[in-house]
């Protein structure tokens, strides 16, 4: 089982999907990489993360679009952002981070606290932290204050529409604690909010 944190940047992931689309939506991973004169391990991080976000399925060394992946490539720049936001929310890692963010007294999370969460998943903590921040900012899941080195929660008034099997937090942000409880109840199958290693659910 791979542990999961974001790899590559959003634009890189999009590049991979565009590349795959150029191959009619399904291609051997090696040939895909070859198309851009890349080694497999250069597209692999993005591929792995695309799989986590359920945009691509990889079986027998062959990458194939999921329905959502196809939709994302066809979408506008703005719609892509929304799709990725929803998919990121479903990952255990981002759920853990968002929860920790909600639970912290002033809805802030320092680099070190983030590091604690990340260090369960991988040795390359620095890069992981950067990628998490990059993706979280891109998807507007949280803000980041680079002077203070803290993640800052975003208060979003309208709950986003449900895109997958994880029910979104249903309560408005002002009553965050109860929203937390509601979410925890409804996602009983998932690890509790303690800082357990977030795992990809394949």
């Amino acid at each position: 089982m791979p542990t999961v944190y974001p790899k590559g940047s959003p634009t890189e992931l999009l590049g991979l999907l565009v590349l795959l689309e150029g191959h009619k939506g399904s291609e051997d991973v090696a040939l895909l990489a070859d198309d851009l004169d890349l080694e497999i391990d250069e597209i692999f991080p993005s591929l792995e993360f695309a799989e986590v976000l359920q945009l691509v399925k990889v079986t027998d060394g062959r990458a194939t679009f999921t329905e959502l992946g196809r939709k994302l490539v066809a979408a506008s720049i703005r719609e892509r952002k929304t799709i990725l936001r929803e998919q990121l929310r479903k990952t255990a890692l981002f759920r853990t981070i968002l929860r920790a963010l909600e639970n912290s007294p002033n809805h802030r999370l320092s680099d070190e606290e983030l590091g604690h969460i990340v260090s369960f998943t991988t040795a390359r903590a620095d890069e992981a932290e950067q990628n998490i921040v990059n993706w979280g900012r891109y998807a507007d899941l949280f803000r980041y204050d680079a002077d203070e080195h803290v993640l800052v929660a975003v208060r979003r008034p309208s709950p986003p529409r449900s895109g997958g099997r994880t029910p979104p937090p249903s309560a408005p942000a002002a009553v965050a604690p109860s929203a937390m409880v509601a979410e925890r109840k409804s996602t009983g199958a998932d690890p509790p909010a303690s800082l357990l290693p977030p795992r990809a659910r394949a």
Binding site: I40, F44, L47, E48, V58, G61, T122, A123, D126
Partner: peptide, 21 residues
Amino acid sequence: MPQGLKVRHPTEPPRVAEART
């Protein structure tokens, strides 16, 4: 997870760890 494809993460350079401490 694609099968038959294993990507080893390059081992963490010690320099990074030192810098962090």
